[in-house]
């Protein structure tokens, strides 16, 4: 069902929504950019509709809402192991189609990979409802090449234009709320149909790519900072640590924290053994995970084409450029 709701009215609707949900959306954090006098556009909890930024891509992705950067698994007291039990409200996330689709990749790892579901992820994930945002595409995106430009997985769609908000509500539970504030109107989500960047992801990547000299370029260029992985909405790796509290050594916690295949230590084991020491090897591992390995397990691409990894890389390393190179090498091999 579609609605047209005037801005002031929508603010009221939002207010009502906020009574029952924690709402996350793209916001501007003034002067919180890495460089002085720059802002950070990122996901955060919002109190009012006016805080939401509709026309910019967020630097970090919404994954941290369901997969916090640091998450306590257990609290230890002297003689017990306790799970954190924080009861929270349900969660609403304002997101574009690519970001909503990224949750499919997260779900695959946390809920499907291996014999167990990850209970910490699931607890948060099952509370999430999405409000879809329209998108006209940004620099470095290529969602349309992956089909992640479109989604059906949303409870409502919200498009702010001029003095009104054009909405489509799919969640039966929400229809009453929306109809209370707006008049019915024909609304269909607006998706990107073609990005500035269009290319095909190679369907078949031969093992010969492992030995290819194309990766040595990344050994020279990549600094192993890990930005590409922390901004990626689909990177899921973590490491588990135990902490002993400084003020009382009998208490502590076990927690997990994001890990990155690009950063030193990811494969390092006791005894000093490790794998993929060169940044080129790490880049290969990351890129193939995104566009090939994951797909072999789950049948769809992990990468959603949001372009954040490229936006964030200070060395101007571009995933699309890398994929393009792989395609060319594979096409060349086909010919031979």
């Amino acid at each position: 069902m579609g609605y047209k709701i005037y801005r002031e009215k929508f603010a009221d609707l939002f207010h009502e929504l906020r009574a029952s949900y924690e709402i996350y959306a793209p916001v501007t954090k003034k002067d919180k950019g890495m460089y002085s006098d720059t802002d950070l556009i990122t996901y955060d909890k919002v109190e009012s509709f006016t805080e939401i930024v509709f026309d910019k891509k967020t630097f970090f992705s919404p994954k941290e809402i369901v997969f916090p950067i640091r998450q306590t698994l257990f609290y230890f007291t002297e003689d017990s192991v306790l799970e954190p039990t924080k009861l929270e409200k349900d969660i609403v996330i304002f997101a574009r189609a690519c970001d909503i689709n990224s949750f499919r990749s997260l779900d695959a790892i946390f809920l499907q990979n291996g014999p167990y579901e990850d209970p910490y992820y699931k607890k948060l994930r099952q509370r999430v409802k999405f409000i879809l945002l329209p998108c006209d595409g940004f620099e470095n995106c290529y969602c349309a090449c992956l089909g992640t430009n479109i989604t059906d997985n949303y409870s409502a769609y919200v498009d702010v234009r001029d003095d009104a908000v054009y909405c489509k509500v799919k969640d039966a539970y929400w229809k009453g709320l929306w109809s209370k504030y707006g008049e019915e109107s024909e609304v269909e989500p607006r998706y990107v149909s073609k990005n500035e960047n269009t290319f095909e992801i190679p369907q078949k990547i031969n093992n010969s790519i492992f030995e290819h000299q194309m990766w040595s370029e990344y050994t020279n260029r990549c600094t192993g900072c890990g930005r590409c992985t922390v901004v990626c909405p689909t990177c899921t790796c973590f490491t588990v640590h135990d902490i002993r509290y400084d003020d009382n050594s009998k208490y502590g916690e076990r927690r997990r924290v994001w890990a990155s295949c690009q950063i030193d230590g990811f494969t390092e084991m006791a005894g000093g053994h490790g794998y993929r020491h060169k940044q080129g090897e790490r880049t290969r591992f990351r890129v193939l995970h995104k566009i090939s390995d994951f797909k072999k397990r789950f049948g769809f691409q992990m990468c959603v084409g949001c372009g954040r990894c490229e936006d964030a890389c200070q060395e101007y390393i571009s995933l699309k450029n890398c994929i393009h190179k792989i395609s060319e090498i594979m096409a060349e091999e086909e010919k031979v």
């Binding site: 954090k29 002067d31 919180k32 950019g33 890495m34 460089y35 002085s36 950070l40 990122t42 630097f59 970090f60 950067i69 900072c225 890990g226 930005r227 922390v230 994001w258 990155s260």
Partner: peptide, 18 residues
């Protein structure tokens, strides 16, 4: 100097007062 802010991949370090 603020270099920690520049190095941090996750914005755990951010800019406070100038």
């Amino acid at each position: 100097c603020g270099e920690c802010i520049l190095k941090c991949p996750t914005a755990a370090w951010t800019r406070g007062e100038k």
